[in-house]
């Protein structure tokens, strides 16, 4: 094999069999974004794989675990912060419940694989359940499922190919819908329609802003620290900077 330049476009499986498979010059995958600078473009010149790598799985898990810990800390402090909202308009406390939704959107934005949002939010919920939240194990997991699914559906609607800020906002809103549906059935089934309406709208707006916009900004900030260098999300952001 000496002397042969093994071009890294070859699939890893092919490389595993020892066959050098240079990429035909005409097979250029579509660039991820037209604005992407040249370094990222050169790295991204290949078909985007939707298969999860080990690092995708582990980092999604770890982000979920860290988010679960942030939820835990938030669980300790949220009541005095959000309760005043409930006094202004009952149900409006859901505006800040968006904090519980950021894990899914963040996971989706970082990992960019099918199921990432759902998986990350679910892991976060399981961690909360294991370290003990006031909501009881299975219920916490159920709400994580609903919230993650809301964000996941939005990423799927964009075919796991668009991760701009408006998609993040929509994903946050989707997570908000998931949360509202689950909470209104589980916790507030007996509420007035007015309460339910306020809760529903607040959850969506809160999800869009807190989980959507903030997660998007978070990914950019994370990328600048170099922590996402093994992810397209990280390489794109640093290339733009």
């Amino acid at each position: 094999m000496s002397g042969i330049v093994r071009v890294a476009f070859a699939s890893r499986a092919a490389a595993g069999r020892g066959k050098p498979v240079p990429l035909p010059p005409n097979e250029r995958a579509r660039p991820v974004h037209s604005t992407t600078a040249k370094i990222a473009a050169s790295a991204a010149v290949r078909r985007r794989s939707l298969r999860w790598r080990v690092v995708d799985i582990v980092v999604a898990s770890v982000v979920g675990v860290a988010a679960g810990l942030v939820f835990w800390a938030w669980n300790l402090v949220y009541a005095p912060i959000t309760d005043p909202l409930a006094v202004v308009a009952p149900g409006a406390q859901a505006l800040l419940y968006g904090v519980w939704l950021f894990a899914g959107v963040l996971g989706g934005l970082i990992i960019r694989k099918p199921g990432a949002a759902l998986y990350t939010e679910l892991v976060a919920a399981i961690v909360s359940a294991l370290v003990g939240t006031q909501w009881g194990g299975a219920l916490t997991i159920l709400s994580g499922l609903a919230q993650g699914l809301g964000a996941e559906i939005v990423f799927a609607l964009f075919l796991y190919g668009n991760y701009r800020v408006y998609v993040a906002v929509l994903a946050g809103a989707g997570a908000g819908i998931g949360m509202a549906v689950n909470d209104l059935i589980t916790w507030y089934p007996a509420m007035d329609l007015g309460f339910k309406a306020v809760y529903f709208v607040s959850a969506i707006v809160g999800g869009a802003v807190v989980a959507g916009v903030l997660s998007w900004l978070l990914v950019r900030a994370l990328a600048r620290t170099g922590a996402l260098s093994r992810f397209a999300a990280g390489r794109e952001a640093t290339a733009k900077a």
Binding site: M1, I4, V5, A8, R53, A232
Partner: peptide
Amino acid sequence: GGVDEGHEEGSLLVDGQPPE
């Protein structure tokens, strides 16, 4: 890491085979 994580040239072998 996979091909999307870097650009490789030349050859690298363990017992005459690629490490993967």
